[in-house]
Amino acid sequence: MTINQIQDAIIEEFGCFNRWMDKYEYLIDLGKKLPIIEPQYKTEQHLIRGCQSQVWLRAELRNGAVTFTADSDALITKGIIALLVRVLDAQQPMDIAHTELYFIDAIGLQAHLSPTRSNGLLSMVNTLKSIGEKFSKAH
């Protein structure tokens, strides 16, 4: 599936939730299924620092596509990372670098990506894209 097909699928899934609780419970569940970064990579090098919740992210280039593993100390943050990883995992570096992540707004999670200092999500999105950029140049 392309990045945008996955984004559209997520928007459709979230469309079923009428109550905020269902949405957040789903996010918390998603977080539990996130491909977790291996402990030896939970280092300063892979840390995206937020004021409150921390995010660890590792990317590898495998056969021309990028594989992500990640973790966070907060469950909701972890759920949002799981969504981002689902959208961008196994995609081409160039596509990752140039994608527009419109699903975040569409499912009402944009507040989590505002430039508050409370979580590392905004910088994580920027990091994801710059990883795509870096790998597409190296490719």
């Binding site: 918390i28 409150q52 919740s53 909701i76 989590h112 409370s118």
Partner: peptide, 22 residues
Amino acid sequence: DAHPFDVGTILDQQGVAVRTGH
């Protein structure tokens, strides 16, 4: 052992404004 960020986010969904963090 819930992360304060998670608690604060869920409280906010219910209209309750608190502060979380250090």
